[in-house]
């Protein structure tokens, strides 16, 4: 009798699910949680190696809704980056994955976000971006577009902070944007981000069905569907499929990832090459000036050492180092004492 279907490490998809969501029916965040479940399952990520991190907000509740057997930490509003930085320094074998929102990232948490980017913490940072605060009932966040309207007609007078532009300018090594309703593209982006080494940010437009899904909103499902403009068509070919460079034929080009997988881009439409930072910045600047909502992998850079490697941390988890490796010797203390005599 055949057992349940399993992934490449022999786990059923149920091991990648979490508890039931308590978010509103139709929330974009739930689609992202489900897509993460699929991406992590298909990539064969070991759940017990994953540290799921978050701050505070609707988005920050979602780590409970996928990958139940993983470790989770729902921390302080806007401060997920520092908690994750500490955790990933303490244990290099952990896979860091965080979910944040636009308030949690671009308002209260922007200070920690930019420094996490700067430090190239090995972390997949998903922003579930809906332009409003949900749990506090619908106030604008710092990513809301200028001129967009709340349900009660209030107009946002301030220019938005664009997370991708910010991350790119600060030296992020993987920068992507997605739309939660475009699951087909989101899953490929997530897989590529999982394959990345270093800091990866995915800014996902994730409509708030309760507070920001009306006419006049620039973060609604309708707005997304009518304005999404993919910067390329691509698929992620995982390492175990042994992608050969150029194996997709002349109609594609490959962007190899450090884990042996590859981003295979079709030579159609804009066909953005994510290794081209200048082009990525131009696209993002164009995007800011137009109603179009560009999605895809804007930038990938391999080879920049993530923070633990940069600090030359030992590879083992710090928690289980034997005492002899963390407490200097009696002779060392004698030497220290002598220097103060």
């Amino acid at each position: 009798m055949a057992g349940p279907k399993t992934n490449r490490i022999g786990l059923p998809v149920t091991d990648y699910r979490g508890v039931s969501s308590t978010l509103c029916k139709g929330c974009g965040h739930d689609v992202i949680s489900n897509t993460l479940t699929t991406a992590l399952y298909e990539m064969g990520v070991e759940p017990w190696r994953v540290a799921k991190m978050s701050g505070i907000g609707c988005s920050s509740k979602t780590p409970a809704y996928f990958l139940g057997p993983a470790w989770g930490f729902n921390s302080v509003h806007g401060r997920m980056p520092s908690v994750a930085t500490g955790a990933l320094l303490a244990n290099r074998t952990l896979i860091g994955l965080g979910v944040s929102g636009d308030g949690d990232t671009a308002s209260i948490g922007i200070g920690q976000f930019v420094h996490m980017v700067r430090r190239n913490v090995p972390f997949l940072y998903v922003v579930e971006n809906n332009g409003v605060y949900g749990l506090t009932k619908g106030q604008f966040s710092a990513t809301a577009d200028e001129g967009s309207r709340l349900k009660d007609g209030t107009v946002n007078d301030f220019a938005p902070i664009d997370i991708c532009t910010l991350a790119l300018e600060l030296g992020a090594t993987f920068v992507a944007r997605a739309f939660s309703a475009d699951r087909k593209q989101l899953i490929e982006i997530l897989k590529a981000a999982i394959a990345h080494e270093g800091f990866a940010v995915i800014d996902v437009m994730s409509p708030c069905v309760t507070f920001n899904n009306h006419v006049g909103s620039t973060r609604s499902y309708d707005y997304g569907r009518n304005h999404e403009g993919p910067i390329h068509e691509f698929g992620f070919v995982p390492a175990w499929d042994h992608p050969e460079v150029g194996g997709g034929g002349e109609d594609t080009f490959d962007v190899p990832m450090p884990d042996g997988g590859t981003i295979r881009v079709q030579r159609v439409g804009r066909a953005h090459d994510p290794r081209d930072k200048g082009a990525a910045l131009r696209l993002l600047h164009e995007d800011a000036e137009s109603p179009e909502y560009l999605t895809g992998v804007f930038y990938v850079r391999a080879g920049k050492p993530p923070l633990p490697q940069f600090l030359k941390m030992v590879e083992e988890p710090l928690a289980t180092l034997p005492e002899a490796r963390v407490r200097p010797t009696r002779e060392t203390l004698a030497e220290i004492n002598e220097s103060y005599r």
């Binding site: 930490f73 520092s82 908690v83 930085t85 955790a87 303490a90 244990n91 952990l94």
Partner: peptide, 11 residues
């Protein structure tokens, strides 16, 4: 935040 995250992970 970093030292709390680190301690959570066993440092």
């Amino acid at each position: 935040g970093m030292v709390i995250g680190a301690a959570w992970a066993g440092a």
